[in-house]
Design a protein around this nucleic acid. Sequence first.
DNA 1: AGTGATTTGTGCGTATGTATG
DNA 2: CCATACATACGCACAAATCAC
Lengths: 91, 91
Amino acid sequence: MAVTDAIDHDAPTPVYKQLAAILRRRIEAGDLVGRLPAEADLMEIYGLGRDSVRKGLTLLKEAGLIESVQGRGTFVVPPDQRPKGEPESSE
Amino acid sequence: MAVTDAIDHDAPTPVYKQLAAILRRRIEAGDLVGRLPAEADLMEIYGLGRDSVRKGLTLLKEAGLIESVQGRGTFVVPPDQRPKGEPESSE
DNA sequence: AGTGATTTGTGCGTATGTATG
DNA sequence: CCATACATACGCACAAATCAC
């Protein structure tokens, strides 16, 4: 695992945003497809609390990159279904 | 959305009390029934932090207007089960 | 049909840091 | 100093939906 894929707790950027950035990169690179690791797994993998994991995932949901289904998991939205035109987050 | 349903951060009244007042109005008007929006949703809807949302909900719980159930959500207490006798917070 | 495991949804508690009045 | 308020971040418990058997 490259250092660029690690969470830096001392960085000024919140860890949940770091997680979102990491996953976003992997998703847009086509690396991450289908079902994402479960929240519990992401917690273990990146050494984060569930709060941070869920906040990170929420960012990606708002971006239309992923979708969560209770009882099933969280899934990467296929590229052709992703909102490319208007990123609703002008912020 | 009416202006009366907006949170005024500049008002002398704390925002969490404003939230409680807003929800109380909607509950007593029969507008809000069943499950309330999740805490995270209330944060988004009214543009508040978790602190304020939870404090606001706490006021309504103390007033017997709502009840929270861990793992399920926060629910409006049916009118016939509401304590009408002693309104502990006349404010 | 039923039981248990998995996974997300929700709420509760607590803590730290920053900022304002 | 203290109350208000937001953001971040950890932990836990329980519910609901789904899946696997």
